[in-house]
């Protein structure tokens, strides 16, 4: 007799053209299906097919679908740590630091605990930077202040406080707005994201350093659905997700550089590094916004302490 097969519906927040759809989602599907020898099948739905990204957490929580991918920004309403997970501006400087924070300093476990309160199993897909593209070079703080930047969420607040003119423009109008000059710059992921939205056609400067580096993509699974699997299969799923974090974080870094090189070669994109005075100013403003995130809950405060401790040890910030 055949073993019982289970099929999970998986709503993605990636459209099929996003590299992560194949590299993250299809990859994990293939691995899970292979290792469970077909006992667990994943049925994938590209962005927006069943649920919009903002509603996926609730749909998974309710068990309407068993699994999904989200940006933690869409779960802020439920998880007080999601604000920190989706990135504090100008905190980390390298991707490995964020990986260490998540996996070695226990931030990932804190996220899992908080998600578990909603009956959801949480696993970060990868950590990567968010970077800006602009249509003119930034050589001084005055240049930065004159920019109209398309932003969203916490970064919008941060950029406004830092002196730029940030505002939100929906994704569907971003390309047109940037090409006509309604805005001078935008961030949509980093290099791969900007390329996927064709932003390099109309904005030729890629800004370094990153606005933030964070675990901006995550898998969520309905806990009951996970528990309904045999213990062996549930372990296969959890282990596959843990491995995926390291595999994808590193691969994504490589793909980022590839996308940027391609944009530089094909679209004449140049890298512009924020002048030290601007970076200094942004870092100062950034710390205020970290405090806001830390106030969301005791847990968020604890996570922020952990983070600031690490940054102090690395010599990035002074003790506050």
């Amino acid at each position: 007799q055949d073993a019982k097969t289970t099929t999970w519906r998986v709503q993605s927040h990636w459209p099929t053209a996003s590299s992560s759809y194949d590299d993250s989602l299809v990859r994990i599907k293939n691995i899970i299906e292979e290792r469970t020898e077909g006992r667990l099948k994943l049925k994938l739905y590209p962005a927006g097919a069943l649920f919009k990204a903002q509603q996926t957490f609730n749909a998974v929580k309710r068990g309407t679908i068993e699994m999904g991918t989200i940006s933690p920004a869409y779960a802020q309403n439920q998880m007080s740590l999601a604000g920190i997970a989706s990135g504090l501006p100008f905190a980390f400087r390298n991707v490995w630091e964020v990986a260490y924070f998540h996996k070695n300093l226990g931030f990932e476990d804190m996220l899992r605990e908080e998600a578990a309160e909603h009956g959801v199993y949480y696993s970060t897909d990868k950590v990567y930077p968010t970077e800006m593209v602009v249509n003119k070079p930034i050589n001084s703080y005055a240049d930065f202040k004159g920019l109209k930047i398309r932003s969203s969420g916490a970064l919008e607040t941060f950029l406004t406080k830092a002196g730029a003119s940030a505002s939100y423009i929906p994704g569907g109008e971003l390309y047109t707005a940037l090409s006509s000059g309604v805005v001078d710059g935008a961030h949509w992921g980093a290099a791969q994201g900007a390329a996927s939205m064709s932003l390099y056609e109309v904005a030729k400067y890629h800004v370094k350093p990153a606005l933030n580096i964070a675990g901006t993509d995550a898998f969520i699974i309905n806990q009951e659905a996970l528990d309904a699997l045999s213990e062996a299969d549930a372990k296969i799923v959890r282990d596959a997700l843990d491995e995926q974090f390291w595999y994808r974080t590193n691969e994504y870094l490589y793909l980022e550089r590839l996308a940027l090189s391609k944009a530089m070669a094909n679209d004449g994109v140049k890298i512009t590094t924020l002048p030290p005075e601007v970076q200094k100013k942004l870092t100062a403003v950034a710390r205020e916004s970290w405090d806001e995130m830390g106030k969301r809950s005791d847990k968020a405060g604890e996570a922020l302490d952990k983070l600031e401790n690490m940054l102090q040890q690395l010599g990035y910030i002074e003790a506050s």
Binding site: K148, T160, S167, Y168, I169, V182
Partner: peptide
């Protein structure tokens, strides 16, 4: 606000939506 005053608002798009 955005074009004439060079000071984009954070609330107009969202409120309209």
């Amino acid at each position: 606000y955005r074009y004439a005053l060079d000071a984009p608002t954070v609330w107009t798009t969202e409120l309209t939506q």
